Amino acid sequence: MLTAKQHELIRFIQQRLEETGISPSFEEMKEALDLKSKSGVHRLISALEERGFIRRLPNRARALEVLKQPGDATPASRKAQSASTNDNVVDLRRAPAARPTPANDVIEVPLHGRIAAGAPIEAFEDYNSLPVPAALLGPGDHYALEVSGDSMIDAGIFDGDFALVRRTDVARDGEIVVALVRNEEATLKYLRRENGMIRLDPANGAYDPQVYRPDEVQVQGKLSGLLRRYH
Score class of each variant (00 low, 15 high):
Asp169Gln: 08
Pro214Tyr: 01
Arg78Trp: 12
Ser37Tyr: 10
Ile10Gln: 03
Leu44Trp: 00
Ile176Gln: 01
Arg114Glu: 14
Asp72Ser: 13
Ile198Asn: 02
Ala103Leu: 12
Asp161Trp: 03
Thr74Ala: 08
Pro131His: 06
Pro24Cys: 09
Pro58Arg: 13
Val109Leu: 01
Asp126Met: 14
Asp215Ile: 12
Glu185Tyr: 13
Thr3Phe: 06
Glu185Trp: 14
Asp150Ala: 02
Gln15Ala: 05
Asp215Trp: 01
Pro131Thr: 01
Asn88Pro: 08
Asn59His: 14
Ser129Cys: 14
Glu122Cys: 01
Ile10Tyr: 04
Leu227Trp: 08
Arg193Gly: 10
Ile107Arg: 15
Glu122Asp: 13
Phe53Tyr: 15
Tyr143Glu: 09
Asn104Asp: 10
Arg16Lys: 15
Met29Asp: 04
Leu200Ile: 04
Leu9Asn: 00
Leu48Asn: 05
Arg56Met: 09
Pro96Arg: 06
Gln220Val: 08
Ala76Trp: 11
Lys30Cys: 03
Leu48Ala: 10
Glu27Pro: 01
Ser39Tyr: 04
Ala186Asp: 07
Arg213Leu: 15
Ala171Asn: 02
Ile54Thr: 03
Leu130Glu: 13
Ala186Phe: 03
Arg172Asp: 15
Leu67Asp: 07
Tyr212Leu: 07
His112Pro: 05
Leu44Thr: 09
Asp201Ala: 05
Val165Arg: 00
Ser23Trp: 02
Leu227Asn: 06
Lys68Glu: 03
Tyr207Asn: 04
Arg43Cys: 09
Ala179Leu: 02
Glu108Pro: 11
Ala76His: 12
Glu27Gly: 15
His7Arg: 10
Ile198Phe: 04
Pro139Ile: 11
Ala186Glu: 01
Pro70Ala: 00
